[in-house]
Design a protein around this nucleic acid. Structure first.
Length: 477
DNA sequence: AGCACA
């Protein structure tokens, strides 16, 4: 069959502008290829780290004669071609041009395309982005936008070198947690190059900046709200109303869980999202309603009230500057009731270290207008087994409430969450049967409905019924 | 040391 009639010698190839190099060190860079080949002519393209061992490469000369000169030089040279001390074998490639598999994002340039994973546009201010990327050189312009890929930013530097330095340092890293809103979990940066060379920024706004042009008109409507806090006549900060409430919980003698908060705040309308976190040793929570009116009603009704009788777990409510929380749909510290509730299992990446330990403290003070809450990532780690039976909360530091008025109403079926439970919320069921919490008051379950006087547990004299701390489920009593 | 992810 194969008459092995070698109509061409295996090692003899027709000349090509493209040279095939092998036996390269696997660390070889394009720069080293250029260094090696440049003496023979103009290199128009390279491709290194080719092959399973990443030890082959291609170099394309502008002119065929240049390639020929290199091959013939080393064919008769006593000194072999070398890269990092390794002898490099050179021959004509059997192709005549290098096909760049380089995706556009790999072509270096002075503008970076940054995807900030795991956050929404409102979570990372343009000032934080500016802060982070200024560590590598003067940032000329920033434009942010939301695409299907998520929240993205174009960062324009003076040159490709600076951009490359920033990319190398930051790609895959995370923005330091203290620069982020308290509810943000992990937040990884994916950085590629943009094809842009010069961004066209029309306004200074909360979405785009041109740091080279202070005269640029300011889009106030866009910049307000995001950055400026209103100051009242007495000099006190007036917090603009928001659909998201920030709750500080004083005298937290008993556990205040997501479920407890959901029960309490659902009395005034649909609770969309909840995030619990610690700030300065105090427990705080963000509660998101669909609208400001509902939030205002809840704030009015609940401010200064206690979740449990006896002055325990007293709520202090303010408006958050957030409008849409970005929270893990199901964890022990956060809940998103707008998505189907399935216990999260696969979050193996709970924390990323700070990016620049050395510069971090200096950066902290520069964040504009931020409630910079410290946030212990370990508290945020996803809890996959969420079984509310007595004794299954090893870190539960709280004692049972003194006045278990909720005990009578709990039913086993609704008082346990297991991993196998599929907990699906939709608009109509939201807030009615919250697993882990037994309800015995007629809360107004769904959004939009005005609070019925007396329907809020906190407006009654008794502690909040239905807010049974996990681990103290009454069906065992 | 031998031709490029499909």
């Amino acid at each position: 069959m194969s008459t092995s009639t070698q109509h061409q010698f295996r090692y003899t190839q027709t000349p090509s502008k493209v040279l095939h190099l092998r036996n390269l060190p696997w660390e070889c860079t394009d720069d080293e290829l250029v260094e090696l080949c440049r003496p023979f002519g103009k290199i128009v393209n390279t491709k290194c780290n080719v092959g399973a061992n990443r030890n082959q490469a291609f170099v394309e000369f502008a002119d065929l004669n240049q390639a020929i000169s290199m091959v013939s030089y080393y064919a008769s040279s006593s000194e072999p071609a070398q890269v990092r001390g390794k002898t490099v074998y050179i021959q004509y490639s059997n192709r005549h041009e290098i096909v760049n598999n380089k995706s556009p994002g790999d072509v270096p340039g002075n503008v970076l395309l940054v995807t900030i994973e795991g956050v929404e546009a409102g979570d990372v201010s343009i000032d934080v982005i500016h802060l982070v990327f200024s560590a590598f050189g003067f940032v000329h312009k920033i434009a942010t936008f939301e695409k299907t890929a998520g929240f993205q930013a174009l960062i324009q530097y003076t040159d490709a070198e600076t951009a490359a330095a920033a990319r190398n340092a930051l790609d895959g890293r995370s923005i330091p947690r203290y620069l982020l809103p308290e509810h943000v979990g992990s937040c990884h940066l994916r950085i590629s190059y943009s094809a842009h060379r010069d961004l066209n920024i029309k306004f200074q706004s909360n979405r785009s900046r041109d740091y080279t042009n202070p005269m640029l008109p300011v889009n106030h409507t866009a910049i307000d709200g995001a950055l400026q806090s209103v100051v009242g006549p007495d000099g006190k900060k007036i917090e603009p109303e928001s659909n998201v409430l920030l709750a500080s919980i004083e005298n937290m003698q008993y556990a205040v869980t997501v479920d407890v908060l959901h029960t309490v705040f659902s009395a005034f309308g649909t609770v969309q999202k909840i995030a619990i976190f610690e700030k300065n040793g105090q427990t705080q929570a963000l509660i998101q309603y669909p609208d400001i009116t509902t939030a205002a009603t809840a704030k009015e009704a609940l401010e200064g009230h206690c979740i449990y009788d006896g002055g325990y777990c007293k709520l202090h409510l303010t408006y958050s500057r957030h409008t849409d929380l970005n929270v893990k749909a199901f964890s022990d510290k956060s809940r998103d009731y707008t998505v189907p509730q399935v216990p999260a299992v696969s979050w193996q990446n709970p924390q990323a270290g700070p990016m620049y330990p050395g510069t971090a403290p200096a950066l902290q003070g520069q964040v504009p207008g931020g409630q910079m809450l410290s946030w212990d990532p370990s508290q945020q780690a996803a809890t996959q087994s969420y079984v509310s039976a007595p004794g299954t909360y090893p870190s539960q530091p709280y004692a049972a409430p003194p006045n278990p008025v909720y005990a009578a109403a709990a039913a086993p079926a609704s008082s346990t969450i297991t991993q196998s439970n599929s907990i699906v919320h939709n608009a109509s069921s939201m807030g009615i049967t919250q697993p882990g919490v037994s309800l015995n008051v007629n809360l107004q379950p769904t959004g939009g409905s005005p609070p019925v006087p007396g329907s809020s547990p906190l407006m009654q004299a008794s502690p909040i019924a239905g807010a049974s701390p996990p681990g103290h489920q009454p069906y065992f009593t």
